[in-house]
Design a protein around this nucleic acid. Structure first.
Lengths: 173, 173
DNA sequence: TCGAGTTGGTTGCGTACTCAACTATAGCAC
DNA sequence: GTGCTATAGTTGAGTACGCAACCAACTCGA
């Protein structure tokens, strides 16, 4: 209720903020998709690969991976299926808990990512350098992080009504 | 090249910034979806409805609408099909250019939005109030707007290599 | 050690999206 | 006018995703 200036039409300046967030995200996704589909895996599920590539050992539990990629368990299962079909990822059953499994980058997957990531990083570097100063970039990251933590926590609340995880995320991102 | 600290693993602090953007966007979308599907149209294509509701006359050209909702023309056609099937939107052929058509909120669609928007706005208000100060919110909006404009322009460049639209967007959002 | 309840992951089914190909109208050259 | 090209939108085919239902393995109490 700080500055709720809704017009009769239900308008609200804050709607534009979330609208901007959606548009930016969609636009970025499309931009990346273009570059990646030229020479790589489907361009889809690049998120999955990059999370694995950025993890020591290049492997992660399915549930961890799902959380980090904003996919449901179901969606992740199929994404990993596809990547496995392409030979970029393999599954390994967890020895201590035989229900669970790890998704792991294969050597070929690792090689593919070594080939793809530089271009991807370069694209992001170019974009951010053009748009933001160093301080602004740090600001944006801090602001987004707070919003993300809040939104994630709220989504969990609605889902399970408990889970009591006060710490938003260990070191994921 | 300002601060390109990529590690041997292809890591880069900037990857986390775009990662945060994606996570935040996905989380928000899910949050809204929950609230909307309880009492409304599919929850999907709420974007389309809200853009129409926020436009004077409650109608917009298909192409405009597609651009504003980050959908392809194809995707928008089907979204409008669905909404038309639900009686919330109608099509009107453009008199001056018989190729084009307008999507327009029906009275029922207008009523539905009048019923739904207050809750949506309240949800956003609550979220932003909890997370940001007034200044931070303005900062975020400004930062996002610049990124969006840049990304959109770049996507257009790749698509048509011209179009020469220096002004990013008249008054859309 | 035997259920009862929980958690990690997978599958059936339906939905929504994209890309490419298409139709129809418009605009322009000549 | 007749053709050529560009633009607005739709349609066919394929893909990706979520939800709900499910199975399998762990946990815990008795």
């Amino acid at each position: 209720m700080a500055h709720n200036g809704a017009t009769p039409d239900g308008d609200d300046a804050r709607l534009t903020t979330v609208g901007l967030l959606f548009e930016t995200s969609a636009g970025l996704r499309r931009l990346f998709h273009r570059q990646l589909e030229e020479s790589g895996p489907g361009g889809q599920s690049f998120d999955v690969l990059i999370r694995l590539a950025r993890t020591p050992g290049n492997e992660l539990r399915m549930s961890e991976l799902a959380a980090q990629t904003s996919l449901t368990p179901s969606g992740l299962t199929r994404a990993v299926d596809r990547l496995q079909g392409q030979g970029l990822v393999s599954r390994r059953t967890c020895p201590e808990d035989r229900r669970g499994s790890f998704a792991q980058l294969t050597p070929e997957g690792r090689a593919t990512m070594d080939r793809l990531i530089p271009g991807h990083v370069a694209q992001i570097d170019a974009l951010l350098d053009e748009v933001y100063s160093v301080e602004e970039e740090a600001q944006l990251e801090a602001l987004l992080r707070r919003m993300r933590d809040h939104v994630l926590a709220r989504n969990l609340d609605l889902g399970t009504a408990c889970e009591g995880a006060p710490e938003p995320c260990p070191a994921a991102d």
